[in-house]
Nucleic acid binder design. Structure first.
Lengths: 347, 347
DNA sequence: CTGAAAGCGCTTACAG
DNA sequence: CTGAAAGCGCTTACAG
C-alpha cells in the first residue's frame, strides 16, 4: 500500500520533453502530432529517435484538451442511444467502441430515454465539448436539429433509422418493416392463424409505427380483420407484455397469436400467458423481435426476428470514421441490414 | 430537408458575448463559471441579467476544452468496466450515468475485457484527457497503478472490489463471499445435497477465487469432500456453463447440485442439463449468481444470489462526486452492499 | 463591482 | 530540417 505522499503533481508537458531532448517544442509537436506521418514537414531520423526516447523515459502523454482546443480534432466521438440497459443496444455499443478504439478514439455515451429533453441535452453537450463525430439514434431530433449540430460544430454524423434524410448523414437501418410483414404473413399462411394481436410501445416511436403498419398490411392482404382491442400499446418493458397479454386473453374472443414489437414485450407476454395457464404455442402463439440473448433461454424458446445490432453498430462506426478520416466526403450513404426470421418454439 | 449550405462554422465565443453585452470577457466568465455561485467576486444583478440574456440570444455554450485546459475541472468522469455487453454492469453503468448527469458531468466508458493491456490503455487515456474522477473495476491494476494515476492527474477514484486497499480510494464491494458461503450451506443443510459441483471463470479473477473459497469453506465445515473433477473453470459465458455441466453429468458419480459463479454460467448449465434429459432440480439442482433479468425468464426459474449492481453504481458515483465536489477529503470509505439469496425453482 | 493581461499546453503558419 | 511566435477559448490573479 503506497503511503500518502504529497501531490507534487507536476504535469509533464511538451516543453519538458523539448528541454530534455534539446530541441524546440515545435519539433516535439511535429513528431508526436497524429498527422505527423502524412505531414509535409520532414524531420531527421536522428531527432525523431531522440525525442521518442525522451517521451518514453519521461512517460509523457500529450494533453488532449490542448490539442482539441488548438487543432480541430478531439479524438472522441459521441454516441446517443435510448438506454444502455436495453439489451438491444449492447452489441451495437460494443461494436462502436471496438471500431473507435482501433482509431484510438474514445466514446462518450449518453442515454436519451426517448426524451426530447435528453436528446437536446446531448446536442448541447457536444457543442460544449465538440467531438469529431457522433453516432445518433434519433427519436425526436429532426434533420434540421442535426444539420444545426453539424454546421455549428463541424462534426460528422452517422445515424440509425431511415427517417433521417439529411443529405450528409449516413444512415444505417434494419429492414424491420419487411421482416415484420413477413413474420405476420408466416403466422397466417404457414400456421393458419386468423386472429392475431399486436403489442408494441407507444406509436410515437417510429419503430412502433413501422411494425404496426407492416402488421396491418399483412393482415389486410389476407382480408383479416383486426379489432381495436387486439392492438395494445405501452412501452418496451416486460411488464407491458404481461399486462397486454392478460387483457388479450381475457377478451371474449381472444387472438390465437400475438406479434410483439420487441423480445422484452414478448417475454412478458409469454410469462403472462403461462401464469394464466395458457399453453404456448398451442393456445397462443407468440413472436418477438430483436433476438436478445434471453430469447433462447426462455421456455418455450421464443420465435423472433433477429436484428444484428452489432453489425449495425459496426457499419455506423465505419461510415463515421471514413468521414472523420476524410476518406469519404460525398453525400449520404444508406446501409440496409436485413433482419432474419428465427423460428423456435413459441409459435 | 435542409439544403447543403456552406459551413460558415463561426464558433460563438465568450468574446462575442462580451462584445454584444458591452462588458469584458472576464465579467462574462465570472457569470458563467461553474463556481460563480460560490465565487468571492460579486457581480451586479443588472450586468448578470444582461449577459445571461445575450448568452441565450446567441445560443452560446462555453467551450469545455478551453475550460479544462485553463481550469482544473473537466466536467467528465471515466468509467472502466470489463465489458459493456455483460448484463451485470448495466444497472451499474446506468446508475453512474444518472448520478453524473445530475452534476452535469459526462461519462466516458471503456471496456477492459479483463485484459491488463486494456486497463493500462484506460490509464493512458485519462492521463491524456484528465478527468475529475474515475470509477474503476480493477482486475489487474494494483494500488500502485491507481496511486500513480491519482498523483499524476490529480483525479479521485472510486473502485469496486475490496482487494483495493489504497488509503484514498473509496471502495464499494458486494458481500459475495458470505453470500456464496450461505448459498452452499443452504444446499447442504436445507436441501440435503452432499455432492456439489462448482463452475466458475478463471481463478485469476478475484471474484472466482473468492466464491470458490467460500464454496470450499462451506463444504469442509460439513466435512464434505470435493473431488477435483467437481470444480470446473472457464469463462463467464453461457457456453462455459453448458460445457461444464456436460462434463459433470457424465462423471461416474455426478454431483446432485451445482453452484455456478454467475447467472450466465448457470443458464448454460441449465440448458446443458435439460438437453441431456436431466430434470432440474430433481436430478441436478443449480444455483447462479447475479440475478440478471433473464434469471427469472428461464425455466425453471433460476435460484440465484442477487447483487444490486445498480445500488453499487450509485454508491460509487456518490462517493466519487463527494470527493470531486470537495465535500469529503478524508481517508477511504468502505461500502459493503449485502447480497440477497433468492430461492426460485432450480433448486 | 469591473477590466486588462497572463497563461493553461498544444499546433501551425511564418521564417530561416 | 528546425525554431520563435501567435493563438485556440477560456479562468484567474492583479489592479483599479
Amino acid at each position: 500500500m503506497p503511503k500518502p505522499k504529497k501531490k507534487v503533481n507536476h504535469t509533464i508537458t511538451m516543453r519538458d520533453v523539448a528541454k530534455a531532448a534539446n530541441v524546440s517544442q515545435s519539433t516535439v509537436s511535429r513528431i508526436l502530432a497524429p498527422s505527423s506521418s502524412l505531414s509535409k514537414v520532414p524531420i531527421s531520423e536522428e531527432t525523431t529517435k531522440k525525442v521518442l526516447q525522451v517521451v518514453k523515459d519521461l512517460g509523457y502523454h500529450p494533453n488532449q484538451y490542448a490539442r482539441s482546443l488548438r487543432g480541430k480534432k478531439s479524438q472522441m466521438i459521441g454516441m446517443l442511444i435510448a438506454d444502455i440497459s436495453n439489451p438491444f443496444y449492447h452489441p451495437m455499443v460494443r461494436a462502436v467502441q471496438d471500431v473507435a478504439s482501433q482509431y484510438h478514439y474514445s466514446v462518450m455515451i449518453a442515454n436519451s430515454d426517448h426524451l426530447r429533453e435528453k436528446e437536446e441535452l446531448f446536442c448541447e453537450s457536444v457543442i460544449r465539448r465538440p467531438v469529431d463525430g457522433a453516432i445518433i439514434i434519433p427519436y425526436h431530433l429532426t434533420d434540421d436539429d442535426l444539420d444545426n449540430l453539424m454546421t455549428r460544430t463541424g462534426m460528422v454524423i452517422s445515424a440509425l433509422g431511415n427517417h433521417i434524410q439529411h443529405p450528409e448523414i449516413d444512415v444505417t437501418f434494419a429492414d424491420d418493416t419487411k421482416a415484420s410483414y413477413e413474420a405476420v404473413q408466416w403466422l397466417i399462411k404457414e400456421k393458419g392463424h386468423q386472429r392475431i394481436g399486436f403489442i408494441c410501445a407507444n406509436m410515437d416511436f417510429p419503430v412502433s409505427a413501422r411494425r404496426y403498419g407492416a402488421f396491418q398490411k399483412a393482415m389486410q392482404e389476407s382480408a383479416l380483420l383486426v379489432p381495436d382491442e387486439y392492438v395494445i400499446c405501452g412501452d418496451w418493458s416486460v411488464d407491458n407484455g404481461r399486462r397486454a397479454i392478460t387483457k388479450l386473453l381475457q377478451l371474449p374472443e381472444p387472438p390465437t397469436a400475438v406479434f410483439a414489437a420487441s423480445d422484452t414485450i414478448a417475454i412478458g407476454a409469454l410469462e403472462g400467458a403461462i401464469e394464466l395457464n395458457f399453453h404456448v404455442p398451442e393456445d397462443i402463439a407468440i413472436i418477438g423481435f430483436d433476438d436478445i440473448p434471453a430469447a433462447k433461454w426462455v421456455q418455450p424458446h421464443l420465435t423472433t426476428v433477429s436484428q444484428f445490432p452489432g453489425e449495425m453498430g459496426a457499419l455506423m462506426a465505419k461510415a463515421l470514421f471514413e468521414r472523420i478520416m476524410g476518406e469519404y466526403t460525398g453525400t449520404r450513404r444508406l446501409y440496409e441490414v436485413p433482419c432474419k426470421f428465427i423460428e423456435r418454439e413459441s409459435t
